[in-house]
Computed example of a mutant assay.
Amino acid sequence: MAELMEALIISKDTTTTFPSFPQRVHLLWGENDRFFNLEFAKDLRVKLGEMTGLDSIENGGHLVHLEKPLVYNKILNKFLASVH
């Protein structure tokens, strides 16, 4: 996780490479996130590779897990069930 956070730091260095994860990664994003917009999430999904999925939550912001807990948990449970 530390490698991912370091790769996300905005810099002028265009040679930054994103870590490769052997496991599936799923991003849950609020469509109205004012800190990291949905386009950022889509770009991040592409940079993290084929093993990465993305779901956006309508009317959710940066703290989507607190703002829309039922929707968030439903999507999270669906992803976790698909892992096994």
Rank of each mutant, 00 (worst) to 15 (best):
G53R: 11
L54D: 02
G30F: 02
E50V: 03
P22G: 04
T17V: 15
V25P: 00
P69D: 04
I75W: 08
K74M: 05
A2R: 14
V83C: 14
T14C: 01
D33G: 07
P19N: 03
H26P: 01
K78E: 15
N37C: 07
L28R: 04
A41S: 12
E50A: 15
I75M: 06
H62T: 01
E6V: 01
S11E: 06
A81N: 15
L27G: 05
Y72P: 00
G49H: 10
K78F: 05
V64A: 07
H65R: 03
L63T: 02
T14N: 10
V25Q: 04
D55A: 11
H62I: 05
F36H: 12
E6Q: 14
G60L: 09
K74V: 01
M51E: 12
A7E: 08
S56L: 09
L27K: 00
L27R: 06
A7S: 15
T14E: 13
N37G: 10
L80A: 10
E58V: 07
F36V: 10
M51S: 15
L28M: 10
D13A: 08
R45N: 10
A2K: 14
G49E: 10
D33M: 10
H84A: 12
H84C: 00
W29K: 03
L44H: 03
K42R: 15
I57M: 03
G49P: 08
E67P: 04
L54K: 08
D43N: 15
D13K: 11
V64G: 03
R45L: 02
L27N: 04
T15P: 00
G53F: 07
I57H: 07
P19I: 09
T52W: 08
M51L: 15
L48R: 12
L63V: 04
L27W: 09
K68M: 13
L80G: 00
W29H: 12
R24N: 13
L28G: 03
N73E: 13
N73S: 14
K74R: 15
R45C: 12
V46T: 14
L27I: 15
N59M: 13
A7C: 10
E31I: 11
L8R: 13
T17W: 00
R34N: 02
K47W: 02
R24H: 11
L80F: 12
L27Q: 06
D43F: 11
I9G: 01
M51D: 10
I57F: 08
A81D: 14
A81L: 11
L80C: 05
R45G: 05
K42C: 00
K74G: 04
P69I: 01
E50G: 13
M5Y: 07
E50P: 10
I75V: 13
Y72T: 09
H62S: 04
R45D: 02
G61K: 08
E67N: 03
T14W: 00
N32A: 13
W29R: 07
M51Q: 15
V71N: 09
N32M: 13
Q23A: 12
H26F: 11
L8F: 05
N37L: 09
R24T: 09
L76C: 11
E39P: 06
